[in-house]
Design a protein around this nucleic acid. Structure first.
Length: 648
RNA sequence: GCCGACGUAGCUCAGGGGUAGAGCGCUUCCUUGGUAAGGAAGAGGUCACGAGUUCAAUUCUCGUCGUUGGCUCCA
């Protein structure tokens, strides 16, 4: 007999060799029907794996992430079988489960696959699923495994197996199909009831663009047809929050093929919105001891040779601008740091002057790969809410924490709660990719981790994700479709101070090297506005709204009174506009609601007579008549409730 | 940059070898209204651009540009 501990803490005795499925059955038939996969002593096992020792067992269903993972991983096997049958001679490589579904990377040889092939594959997958073929794991010796795939001339699987230890290699069989696999499957294919292949994409073998390009097919499957329908509806809903769509509808920004790809044009409303965000940050930064500076949009090539950026990115950047005569070369500014370093160098500093915090809304230009451009989130010309802090090594920890406070203030003022902090460190295996000494890297990495810990951030460490000049702490936020984007960033840099020979006079009367912190709480105005749009669906916090209220005149007769109310509101710092069009009030309300006006003020005969406005709140309805002054107070009270001042 | 899809009116989209259609928006007129679409008329398109096939191309083929889902990249 063996003892199995279940998640509720209870311990049950079973015959040696009991399977997770049988354990589930002993609890309830319903559970047994729904159990998809299991974890025994922190190891993923099949529901059919005999358990031979004491241990703790967790059973997973569709409601668990691990259950979905097994579901989708198994679905990848089924898709692979369908593809192999329909396109004989293809070479399978890897096919994992992902956050929403799964993919399989396949070498189709000369065959071109496109979305028009999906239906056929989906149909075959469903046929296989209906066969209720059990997934069965078996151990294979390295030699046999290699033989199997050498016979199939599948160099990809051979490469995978070569990197595995003999004795830990397993194959998974179902129906007529066999795949190299570590495990974690459904009991059988019959659980898969709904199948949707979502896209086809090129993907490099092992993610390296020097390798062969494979065809990646993405799909998603569900245990019920209804779940698939719901998922598709969810996708449709997410599309409604797409910042590209909202940006056009709300007249915030546009693009022009003539101006060039990735170069956004900010429309009046968008520019006003962006200006308001800038003012908000400027105010907080002033309190936090920052000083604003302004630098030009181009810089001499030597500036970037000194900074090291030219060597690293020169080839892959917008190419230098040449002067007519002297043969000088200038680069479009890809970042503000070198300019700020030169500002620092323009003076002499004592340790008493530090930290020096230089801030600029600096517009930069980067030649991003054309396939990477995406709305406002990835562009070629954008404005960073940049600042560089020059401080003594002793001040680093404290300054770093202060920056975290500022970023958290920005995020909370704008209602971003679901962000993750990511600490990006150097890849110790690939040190040549980075500039700077080991000692400095270590110091900087520790400073970041300590600050993140002390500020109570829940952070994730990503090795190899650091910038080439230093480690960083990024604040990541998801867009409507769940894609992660970096917004705020804080980076420690020991290298630029070195390269620009920056110094300050210490209390010992000697020259010392300052440490530099790069930071941008928004990241870039473009990306921030994009993500903010997707999070709020255009329903911005009241203080940020391009227009806070719209005055709807009941007919042209009340135009004068409407204008009078507008002036009154403007005197109270409220952004409002008048809709005097010859339309019914019903239509005006509908459009104001769709255009996200938070407040609608209806004025007609009654209002004009007693000097009031009828207030309607978006999404809530009629709030009744009130004095325009009272309305102004209502708005301003709500704003001051939601927008707290930054406390240092 | 690579793989796939797409590009028709300001916007959302239908159509299809014989040079185009809807809804919304826009203009004008009627209507002067009470909390999510009042009515009528009209204007607006080199069907992204360039080449090829054809008697004829917006439609088919190729290329370019742009957009887009991924991959690689992201100072």
């Amino acid at each position: 007999m063996i003892e199995i501990r279940l998640p509720d803490g209870s311990i049950k005795e079973f015959e040696k060799g009991v399977t997770p499925y049988e354990v589930a059955l002993s609890i309830s038939e319903g559970l047994a029907r729904n159990v998809l996969s299991a974890k025994f002593n922190d190891q993923i096992v099949e529901t059919s794996t005999p358990l031979t020792t004491n241990g703790s067992l967790i059973l997973f269903t569709w409601n668990d992430d691990e259950g979905k993972k097994a579901f989708w991983h198994s679905s990848a096997h089924v898709m692979a079988q369908a593809i192999e049958e329909l396109y004989p001679g293809v070479k399978l490589t890897i096919g994992p489960a992902i956050e929403n579904g799964f993919y399989y990377d396949v070498d189709f040889g000369d065959h071109k696959i496109s979305e028009s092939d999906f239906n056929q594959i989906e149909q075959r997958m469903l046929e296989i699923a209906r066969g209720k073929h059990p997934f069965q794991m078996r151990e294979v010796s390295k030699e046999n495994a290699l033989n199997h795939y050498q016979k199939e001339r599948n160099e990809f699987k051979v490469e995978l197996i070569e990197n595995l230890q003999d004795g830990e290699i397993t194959f998974c069989d179902h129906d007529t199909f066999t795949d190299l696999c570590r495990g974690g499957h459904l009991p059988h294919t019959g659980f898969i009831k709904a199948v949707k292949l979502t896209s086809v994409a090129g993907a490099y073998w092992r993610g390296d663009e020097n390798n062969k390009q494979l065809t990646r097919i993405y799909g998603i499957t569900f245990p019920k047809q209804k779940d698939l329908k719901e998922y598709l509806v969810l996708l449709e809903e997410a599309k409604k929050r797409d910042h590209r769509k909202l940006g056009r509808e709300l007249e915030l920004f546009t693009f022009s093929q003539k101006v060039g790809q990735g170069l956004p044009l900010w429309l009046p409303k968008g520019a006003a919105l962006r200006g308001r965000l800038e003012d908000f940050l400027k105010k907080a930064q002033q309190k936090a001891g920052y000083e604003m500076v302004v630098t030009p949009h181009i810089g001499h090539k030597d500036l970037y040779v000194t900074s090291g950026h030219y060597a690293k990115y020169g080839e892959d950047s917008f190419q230098p601008i040449k002067t007519p005569h002297e043969g000088e070369e200038f680069l479009l500014k890809p970042m503000n740091c070198p300019h700020h370093c030169e500002i620092y160098r323009s003076g002499q500093w004592s340790y008493k002057d530090l930290p020096k915090r230089l801030a600029e809304f600096g517009t930069v230009y980067r030649y991003e790969q054309s396939g990477e451009l995406h709305g406002l989130t990835r562009v070629r010309g954008f404005t960073q809410d940049d600042a560089h802090i020059f401080c003594t090594p002793d001040q680093l920890d404290d300054e770093f924490k202060k920056v975290i406070d500022l970023v958290l203030y920005v995020f909370s003022s704008l209602g971003f709660e679901n962000f993750t902090a990511q600490v990006s460190l150097r890849d110790p295996e690939n040190k040549e990719k980075y500039i700077g000494s080991d000692a400095n890297w270590e110091k900087a990495e520790n400073a970041i981790i300590n600050a993140a810990k002390e500020k109570g951030l829940s952070y994730k460490i990503e090795t190899g994700e650091a910038a080439f000049y230093g480690p960083k702490l990024d604040f990541m936020v998801k867009d409507a479709l769940g894609r992660q984007w970096q917004l705020g960033t804080i980076q420690v840099d020991y290298n630029l101070p070195e390269r620009f020979d920056l110094s300050y006079k210490g209390s010992d009367n000697e020259l010392h090297r300052p440490v530099m912190i790069h930071r941008a709480p928004f990241g870039s105005m473009e990306r921030f506005v994009a993500i903010l749009l997707e999070h709020t669906a255009g329903d911005f916090p009241l203080w940020l709204m391009p227009q806070q209220a719209i005055i709807l005149s009941l007919s042209e007769k009340y135009e004068k009174y409407a204008e009078k109310v507008l002036t009154l509101l403007e005197n109270n710092e409220i952004r409002a506009t008048v809709d005097n069009r010859n339309e019914t009030v019903g239509k005006k309300i509908r459009e104001a609601e769709l255009n996200k006006f938070p407040f609608m003020l209806i004025v007609g005969e009654q209002e004009e007579k007693d000097g009031t406005v009828s207030v309607r709140r978006r999404g809530e309805g009629d709030l009744g008549r009130m004095d325009p002054e009272a309305f102004a107070q209502l708005i301003n009270k709500e704003i001051s409730k939601n927008l707290k001042a930054f406390e240092v």
